[in-house]
């Protein structure tokens, strides 16, 4: 199958790079990183670096799943509640006496189930993805709350050391979860770029009907994408639970918005057909670095929303302007 270039008919490597959708977020993240390294000496403190890793990793893992969905033209608002549920399922399995490995598998399995349900509702029952995943978001949260009835703020605690080690252990001075994230980014980037399945997702996101007419099983591909997103969200929940040693009702509340915003800054679009995993990763890195910068400069956190919203607005508008002029040049208007 021919490999479709996401962008670009210009010459020169730099010009081509700038035309990639993820250029903005990579650039923003890199600038912010360089700025923080030089302007704030305490940025490179071990405590800060560690907290950066543990906040980027779970959200970055979720952003990968979200980006896969965005590319295929749908999205998933239930990731936050899936994250909470995944952590809860593994925590409950542990208290029921399951081995850590089994508990992790159980948590991931809950993600498979939710992803499959999402996929079937959207692709078989043909319910709009926004409605379907708001619905499963409510359902997931409802289940979490019911499971946690009678348990206080803390929810489930006291997990075996070997389970907590998943979230707290380090390898070569970086957390396991950060390594996992990096591996997943590379794997998914390659899958999207060079495999048949990955290229099909771009076609489906670009034009669902014509993708089906080309003989692509769009329905199956999107269901798989939903399952991937569910699995990654649930796994992120397991990691957070292992890291904090707590599974409560607050895990992942509002996470869906952060993840979607990171993906849009990273070049994704709710319309589908564009975006990359590197973009999702750099978008998330940018978001986390920015909230870190706010902490380091002791700026009240409410300014962060203003800035994030503003940047998002600029990114969306510029992207719209660019594609509008491109279409005008091609004579579509």
């Amino acid at each position: 199958m021919a490999i479709k270039k996401t962008n670009g008919n210009g010459n020169g490597i730099i010009a081509n790079l700038l035309k990639q959708n993820e250029a903005v977020s990579v650039g923003l993240a890199a600038l912010l990183l360089i700025f923080l390294v030089f302007a704030r000496p305490n940025f490179l403190d071990q405590v800060n670096i560690e907290s950066l890793q543990t906040s980027i990793a779970p959200y970055g893992i979720m952003a990968i799943g979200m980006m896969v969905l965005l590319i295929s033209g749908v999205f998933d608002l239930s990731v936050g509640s899936t994250m909470g549920l995944g952590g809860l399922v593994s925590a409950i399995s542990l208290t029921q006496g399951a081995s850590p490995l089994l508990a992790i598998m159980a948590g991931i399995l809950s993600g498979v189930v939710i992803g499959l349900i999402n996929g079937v509702i959207v692709e078989v029952a043909r319910v709009n993805a926004l409605i379907a995943t708001i619905g499963t978001m409510y359902i997931g949260r409802g289940i979490s709350e019911i499971v946690l009835v009678g348990r206080g703020y803390a929810g489930y605690t006291n997990f075996p050391e070997s389970f907590n080690n998943l979230g707290r252990g380090q390898f070569l001075n970086a957390y396991y979860m950060f390594w996992i994230l990096l591996i997943l980014v590379v794997v998914f980037q390659l899958v999207l770029r060079y495999t048949k399945f990955g290229r099909q997702l771009y076609y489906i996101g670009g034009n669902y009907e014509s993708a089906e007419n080309l003989g692509i099983n769009a329905r199956r591909a999107r269901i798989i994408a939903f399952i991937l997103s569910g699995v990654l969200a649930a796994f992120a929940g397991v990691l957070v639970t292992a890291r904090a040693g707590i599974a409560n009702r607050y895990t992942g509340v509002g996470a869906h918005m952060d993840v979607i915003i990171a993906c849009i800054i990273g070049g994704g679009s709710l319309i589908g057909g564009q975006g990359s995993i590197v973009g999702a990763f750099s978008g998330m890195v940018f978001m986390v670095l920015m909230s870190n910068a706010f902490n380091l400069y002791a700026i009240p956190p409410q300014w962060q929303n203003i800035l994030v919203g503003f940047i998002l607005l600029v990114v969306i508008t510029v992207d719209g302007y660019v594609s509008l002029t491109k279409q005008k040049r091609l004579g579509k208007f």
Binding site: M257, I260, I261, I264, Q302, W303, Q304, N305, I306, L307, V308, G309, F310, L312, L313, I316
Partner: peptide, 9 residues
């Protein structure tokens, strides 16, 4: 989504 974040801020 962008204005939602901005106005909430």
């Amino acid at each position: 989504i962008a204005t939602m974040t901005l106005i909430r801020g």
